[in-house]
Nucleic acid binder design. Sequence first.
DNA 1: GTGAAAGCGCTAACAT
DNA 2: ATGTTAGCGCTTTCAC
Lengths: 337, 337
Amino acid sequence: MRNRVTLADVAKAAGVNAATVSRSLNPATESQVSKETARKIKKISKDLGYTPNTVARGLRTRKSLTIGVVIPDLTNPIFPPIVRGIDSYLIPRGYSAFVVNTDGNHEIEQTLISSLMERQVDGLIVATGHTEGDLLTQYHQRGVKVVMVNRESPGIPFPAVTSDDSAGISAIIEHLVALGHKNFIHLAGPADSSTGLLRSRTFVSECKRLGISGKVIKNESYSIDEGQAAVDKLLDHGTRNFSAIVAGNDLLALGAYHSLRTHGLKCPEDVSVVGFNNMPFTADFQPPMTTVNAPHFDMGVEAARLLLSQIDGIDTAPVKVTLPVSLIIRGSTARVL
Amino acid sequence: MRNRVTLADVAKAAGVNAATVSRSLNPATESQVSKETARKIKKISKDLGYTPNTVARGLRTRKSLTIGVVIPDLTNPIFPPIVRGIDSYLIPRGYSAFVVNTDGNHEIEQTLISSLMERQVDGLIVATGHTEGDLLTQYHQRGVKVVMVNRESPGIPFPAVTSDDSAGISAIIEHLVALGHKNFIHLAGPADSSTGLLRSRTFVSECKRLGISGKVIKNESYSIDEGQAAVDKLLDHGTRNFSAIVAGNDLLALGAYHSLRTHGLKCPEDVSVVGFNNMPFTADFQPPMTTVNAPHFDMGVEAARLLLSQIDGIDTAPVKVTLPVSLIIRGSTARVL
DNA sequence: GTGAAAGCGCTAACAT
DNA sequence: ATGTTAGCGCTTTCAC
């Protein structure tokens, strides 16, 4: 049905050996063939509509030119830019990205990583958390190249590309303190994610350093619903001794928006809210969200760069790359009255 | 380095032939092997950490269990739900989706489709426009299964899954007319997309039917910037004889928001605006956007279903599936003063 | 029920 | 510069 024309077909039509066709069509080996035959073979292969079979090639060369990309959920707006960043680096270099969604489910993730490995991916870019001893570390020990993006794996020496979350949280608190805020709530991201952990740790240490009241509320996931539920709980219990909410990410912050609104509180007049990530459309929210810009596209690019340099054996140390962030002040933060 | 353990290794360890191992490990052929040896082989293969090589299997069976998914841009929020929908149908059935982004560029698209075909995908789900005679139709003629999603290809008999855009536009106009609006602007999507064309045609015919003034403004792409520029142009020329903007999609509508704001006009007090798609976060915009919900996840599911039934030879006719839409009335539309 | 052998389409050693 | 040969890891006849 498909892909009828093979190297052998071209070879027969050209009256040469399949190997010669292979050499002619591969830029790296083309020089081994006489200019004339190369030209002839190219013409014939085009006329016949020859399409190389990368699967067969990969079986022989033991390279698939495919990179597995493991993310929690494509519908979380921070991931598409990361994926596009990865793509932008890989594609010009002949690689492709194979993306899978784990939904943060460890079991699903193990299955999907296996399926990527069975597909003989040349390496893995992973945006989900990991513990020692799981499938990923096993594969890594067997020589599979892995790079983390957006998250780090505690205790596991994978190269990683992250944003400077610590600096981001510091900038947020500095900004809020300058506006006169003294009592903070932090909607922390999941404790089992490196981002959630680092952001909340920085929150705590910064509050301490500045002698400011900061309460941390733990969340199971980075979702709108969790953020809303957390603030609902607070307000339903009559807790109002805070003037600013520092959210672990934009989604949690948006949940806070919703909760404040249903409780008749105005943002930023009554409560200032800050997000994290500067995901698409935060500027269009009501009110426009003050947040920290994390360079997701560039993080994807950098992760891909790191992975290929690992694969090519150029870079072998577990490099940690931290990309700078910047505070984007919009309408969800105001001077405390 | 990777994937050391092969069928042959397991066979040697078990003292049997590779073929027997293959039969034992494949559910479909397991019955051909004695229960006892099957059990023994499974144990050994597990102990050895055997991982099947799907690439080699695919070479032999001429099936990759991989579906190519061609979309314009993952960062357009309507596509992640479609992709997740596709995944949700494919994965339980042993297939995987390989997603590529074309950025609406025809040349890039041709390259990426070729690369998917070289990877021996078993079929294609395509969310970009196509003309007769291009690569896609060539492949289709050679027997490659193709299903369109979100768009149709004019004149090309691919099965297609779309939303009922016509009903959506009708509902919008009905809603606006009920609010007293009489002068409409339509920010049309690209004329080379079936959605853009269908929506604008319906807009024109509905205006005609109801005896209402409707001006169509053409746009090159479905983007915020295009929408903003289009309305900017209108307002900069002093055109204000309209009370409602019907946008081709939510992005164009959001662009209209921006333009109105920079021109000191309030939505919905001065101008009502309606989007299309009900993409994520439209409810959080300022003002919350009235739009038409298109069931993107379900469209993905349906497209995957259609494709697999084509591949399995169950369904062979070029079915057109149209999924129902619903008008979501929020804060961007109001009674005309 | 299991083994032997062939071959999917390609590339890489080794010839010539 | 080109041909020959072998084999990547798997499945599938065809034997027995």
